[in-house]
Amino acid sequence: MEVKTKGLKLADILTTIVIAIVFGIIYKLWAPLYSAVGAVGFHLDQLIYGMWFIASSLAYLLIRKPGVALLAEIAASSGELIMGSQWGLEVLIYGVVQGLFAELVFAAFRYRRFDVFVVSLGAVGATIGSLIMDFYKGYIEALAPWNMALFLLARFIGAILISGVLAVSLAKALEKTGVTQMWRPASKDDYDALNR
């Protein structure tokens, strides 16, 4: 029989990566949309930037294990890279940094809380990761202050709405389909029912 390995099991890894690859396609399709919205100006594009963090949020909500947020973000961004992202290699490195920051937030809560608040904080973490990369890449500090404030505000709000609120509602809808039964065969409610 298989010996107990440390870390994630193959089933967790495969499921995380499959979810991530689905979002890799969305990430890839999101890029032209982002560019199109960017043409409108006034940093409206930053409101939809948060979509690029959703893989880590959703994987964390569904699989609920240490490391899946990071793995999901890396897998989604490498999927995006393999499909020929318009930002090229950059997406992979952004993905690693964003996933790492989201993971750190989830680790700070010891992987025990799975509500909108924690996932939104994870999205904020990923946003900070993306801003660190932007800082090195694009001299964003050189934007005029009012412009900079608008830029940051739009990106944080977008991240919380998409990778926080939307991710939680997606996860809830997926729980109803019963696909998460494999990881959590019995919930706390079931045990409470036994004690009644």
């Binding site: 298989e2 390995t5 099991k9 193959l10 089933a11 495969l14 499921t15 990566i17 499959v18 979810i19 689905v22 569904l62 997606l170 809808a173 997926l174 389909t177 696909v179 998460t180 494999m182």
Partner: peptide, 29 residues
């Protein structure tokens, strides 16, 4: 949601079945 939920749930189910097969063939070793 109409697209994402069925696509994701089917993918997750398929991933879990494949994972069982792969574990049986010691891909996780």
């Amino acid at each position: 949601k109409r697209y994402a939920i069925p696509l994701l749930s089917q993918s997750i189910r398929r991933a879990q079945r494949i994972a069982v097969a792969m574990e049986a063939k010691q891909f996780s070793g």
